[in-house]
Design a protein around this nucleic acid. Structure first.
Lengths: 183, 183
DNA sequence: TGGTACATGTAACATGTTACATGATTAG
DNA sequence: CTAATCATGTAACATGTTACATGTACCA
């Protein structure tokens, strides 16, 4: 007992398990879809956390089904642990943006390389934004009120991606523009 | 030889060392100031990376000065390693935003708690934005052209923080508003 | 002369990443 | 029958975090 507090990744798994038993595989897919935009996790991590939480009694393994699927069910202890996590002040966000790191040292990095990276990342963000926007478009009108939390996180994704795109588009030519030899 | 490629944190230290020898302490402070907005590192990490890089011959320790300060100087091998890092396509950014995680599971979390967390985070972001904006205000006009890279990363911080604040302010009352007993 | 800021570092541990091994089921 | 996808998991390692120990120099 007196387990150390849950980490956020484990807590999110417990969060998903509130709605019913799920397998590791399901959780990976669900997490990617629902929190992938601002929380990353790998299947390795998921299986490790599940094993740890099962040992700690926060979840219980059910019968294995087809293809060895093993569903986990949240226990009362798990719900309590989740509640305790939810009551802690969430920490500040961390962002790790390698492109910006490259950019800080831009003077030491080939200009063309940088311009290409920027273009690639811009495209990636445009794609993500499009994805979020099409998700948002399919939200039934009534749902916006019914599940404001999911909507809010989706809105965050949209706001973030739009800001990033606007920033990309405002970069000065001195950074973005590649002098091209007339080939 | 054939060392595995640099990690981004180590690379950033090498980046700073391009402009002259620095101690671990200096690097921590400099990193916090220059890349703290989108890349976090702790002093423990810095000293560990310095030790590793010194062993690998990417940097060289100089004479210890006052208060045991130990400056490190980048070597040619270090410059080469940095260049190799700069030539790799920077990976996608990762964001880890605990507040959003809490929010996804908002239905399972006390409303008042959530509202308080949101207010606290909003204040934090407002503060950061103000900091960035005052930094931006002190950039001499000519500098904008002279060091477009630093300016660009600062602009990112501003764009990001503004987007986050706007998002906060657009959250629906159903999330933000706490019913207050008339006390 | 005592507190504060400077400065370096270690140890222990938590978390995240990558690569791989294994097998079940399904679709063609 | 075979390739693709589903599904679980381990091992090894890299990276990040937290707590602490040690000592120096400045400044009031």
């Amino acid at each position: 007992m007196t387990e150390r507090p849950l980490n956020a990744t484990a807590a999110s798994l417990l969060g998903f398990l509130h709605d019913g038993p799920l397998t590791g595989w399901d959780l990976v897919a669900l997490a990617e879809q629902r929190i992938g935009g601002f929380w990353s996790l790998t299947s390795s991590q998921v299986y490790r956390e599940l094993a740890t939480m099962a040992t700690a009694g926060l979840i219980e393994a059910g019968e294995r089904g087809r293809r060895d699927r093993q569903p986990f069910k949240i226990t009362d202890a798990g719900r309590a642990a989740f509640r305790a996590w939810g009551e802690r002040e969430p920490g500040a966000e961390t962002i790790r943006f390698p492109l910006l790191l490259t950019m800080v040292f831009g003077q030491h990095i080939p200009r063309e390389q940088m311009a290409r990276s920027i273009a690639a990342h811009r495209a990636l963000h445009a794609e993500r934004l499009a994805g979020y926007e099409s998700m948002a478009a399919t939200i039934p009108a009534g749902h916006r009120a019914a599940d404001p939390f999911s909507v809010a996180t989706l809105d965050f994704g949209i706001a973030y991606e739009r800001a990033v795109l606007t920033w990309f588009d405002g970069l000065p030519d001195s950074i973005v523009q590649v002098e091209r030899a007339d080939d």
